[in-house]
Amino acid sequence: MTTPASSTADNHAWLRRQARWSPYELAFWLAVLIPFWVFPTYLTLASQIAITALFAVSVDLVLGYAGIVTLGHAMFFGLGAYAAGLLTKAGWGEPLSGLVLSGLLTALVGLLVSFMIVRVQHLALLMITLGLGLLTAELANSLGWLTGGTDGLQGVDVWPVFNHFEFDLWGYTAYAYALAALFVGVAAARRIVHSSFGLSLRGVRENLNRMPAIGSPWRRHLQIVYTISAGMAGIAGAVLTHTTETVSLDSLSFQRSADVVVMLILGGTGRLYGAILGAAIFMIARDQLSDMNPQYWYFWIGLLLMLVVLFMPKGILGGLSGLLRRLGG
């Protein structure tokens, strides 16, 4: 509920409130530390969730905020994963600089692709992103001498984080590492969506027709966010490489591109934490359900997806926050 503001001071305060860290957010970041003590056997799953959540947040920036529908974002995730892996094979196993370099590389590729992306919309946009994703996956498959092809990239050797924390078998370092990457990613994404730039992205999503009429170079805005998103997706892929010390073609697959969109729809688009929630639900469901029945677990995701789309059009987080607002009067 927003109260009417009649002075400019009220307006300043209202805008500040929109960008403030909420108690729910703080509670969330404390809660994600629980697996260290309570579910240590699930730490590997927890890191997978954190990595996927970072990937989902990167897609939320383009899909949820800027309204660019994409079915090919695994392209950047996979490129980042391979870049990080190849870097260690070339003899540089320092993880943090590996993340930065992989992110810069995928951001550069994102920038190049963005010139094509901002020229099309709707179905054509879906087909372009889908096509680029498939092309990249097939390219990696055919460049077996470089990528290891279907066997995956073997012999990835990552040095300890800060030259001190070895990636251990139990996954403590991996989870801490993935969680830190997610936190930095979300903090960066938060800053972007609460800037004047983030506001203009919402403008593009809300009404593309009006943007030129207020003098907006909206295509350039979309290129910038697409580039940032590609870089963030690449970093997520690089984190996967560092924590698992292997890269497979699966990181570039269409399945990954499609799954991340499903996660966003489940959790709710355009709210960052919806991406995280969606990733968590999806990954936990997959883990639990595929134990019961490895072949048909997607049935339940399909069912959940339909229920959410029908009854919570703003996703589970959107539905929850609506419920909270109603309870709070």
Partner: peptide
């Protein structure tokens, strides 16, 4: 947008 500040994604609104 008029002031050309819309693309400053690092600056809080």
């Amino acid at each position: 947008e008029r002031e050309g500040k819309a693309a400053q994604f690092w600056r809080p609104l």
